[in-house]
Amino acid sequence: MDLFSEQPPDYVPLADGACWLPGFALPVMDELWSCVAQHLRIYPPQQMQTPMGYLMSVTTSSMGDWGWVSSANGYGYSAVNPATQQAWPPIPPVILHLASAAALKAGYAGFVPDSCLMNIYQAGNKMGLHQDKDEKDTSQPIVSVSLGIPATFLFGGSKRSDKTQKIPLHHGDVVVWGGHSRRFYHGVAQVKPAIHPLTGQQRINLTLRKAR
């Protein structure tokens, strides 16, 4: 299917266990954006270091019992913000309900994330193909919510060399993957310059997981 050829429906299957839900977050966007904007004011995003010693191009912040962190020691989850040694704030109800509803629409009942990673992209940023494999509970799906300027999501297969699908994500779109697709490689192509009324020149991605 050519994902750029026509207006997509509200449910687009991507693979066994994976789907794209265009505009799924829009009905709760006012409350969702208020929570996100307030969080980023109080808990500013930080530029973390990769295990190879490089600074990540995207900046990050977190909510929930566990925040995703990266350092020279590797990738993983921490109950505290490494910059402040303070606990991460709780995930707001609107985000928990959105993640649960998106997971249910994708066929995963009872999803309750304990981690919400925020990745903030500027024009020129990208995310290389990778697997989400730092979670102890991989029986639960991953829910990804896009805010702000558009981006092309790359969704591959179980091997890095597998062909990727190019999914044109817009403000309010949600992608869910789990089950057979839980460890499929995925990434984000280089983000092109654009402006969004809420986020300005940024794309903000929320990734919700059950880390523990």
Rank of each mutant, 00 (worst) to 15 (best):
residue 53 G to C: 02
residue 56 M to K: 09
residue 1 M to C: 10
residue 127 M to K: 11
residue 67 G to M: 05
residue 164 T to K: 07
residue 208 L to Q: 03
residue 147 L to P: 06
residue 182 R to H: 03
residue 197 P to L: 01
residue 88 W to I: 00
residue 68 W to L: 11
residue 183 R to H: 10
residue 66 W to K: 00
residue 121 Y to E: 04
residue 131 Q to E: 10
residue 40 L to I: 04
residue 73 N to Y: 12
residue 16 D to S: 13
residue 210 K to V: 13
residue 176 V to R: 02
residue 155 F to K: 06
residue 57 S to K: 11
residue 71 S to R: 01
residue 161 S to W: 05
residue 60 T to N: 07
residue 135 E to D: 09
residue 9 P to F: 11
residue 151 A to Y: 13
residue 52 M to Q: 14
residue 48 M to P: 11
residue 25 A to M: 02
residue 62 S to N: 12
residue 122 Q to K: 15
residue 184 F to S: 11
residue 38 Q to L: 14
residue 82 P to V: 01
residue 91 I to Y: 02
residue 130 H to V: 00
residue 107 G to D: 04
residue 188 V to M: 03
residue 120 I to T: 11
residue 90 P to S: 05
residue 138 T to S: 15
residue 63 M to Y: 03
residue 140 Q to G: 12
residue 61 S to C: 06
residue 48 M to E: 14
residue 194 A to F: 09
residue 90 P to G: 01
residue 20 W to Y: 05
residue 76 G to H: 07
residue 147 L to D: 02
residue 133 K to M: 14
residue 129 L to M: 15
residue 212 R to Y: 10
residue 169 L to I: 09
residue 56 M to E: 10
residue 39 H to M: 08
residue 176 V to L: 05
residue 29 M to P: 08
residue 127 M to D: 09
residue 41 R to H: 12
residue 212 R to P: 06
residue 119 N to Q: 04
residue 26 L to E: 14
residue 205 N to T: 07
residue 9 P to I: 08
residue 159 K to I: 01
residue 161 S to N: 13
residue 151 A to M: 13
residue 81 N to C: 09
residue 1 M to I: 09
residue 192 K to S: 13
residue 175 V to F: 01
residue 206 L to Y: 00
residue 148 G to M: 00
residue 17 G to R: 00
residue 15 A to M: 09
residue 3 L to C: 12
residue 159 K to L: 14
residue 26 L to R: 15
residue 83 A to C: 11
residue 138 T to L: 15
residue 182 R to D: 00
residue 89 P to I: 01
residue 182 R to C: 00
residue 186 H to P: 03
residue 192 K to E: 14
residue 80 V to A: 07
residue 142 I to R: 00
residue 174 V to K: 07
residue 68 W to P: 00
residue 194 A to E: 09
residue 196 H to N: 03
residue 76 G to M: 06
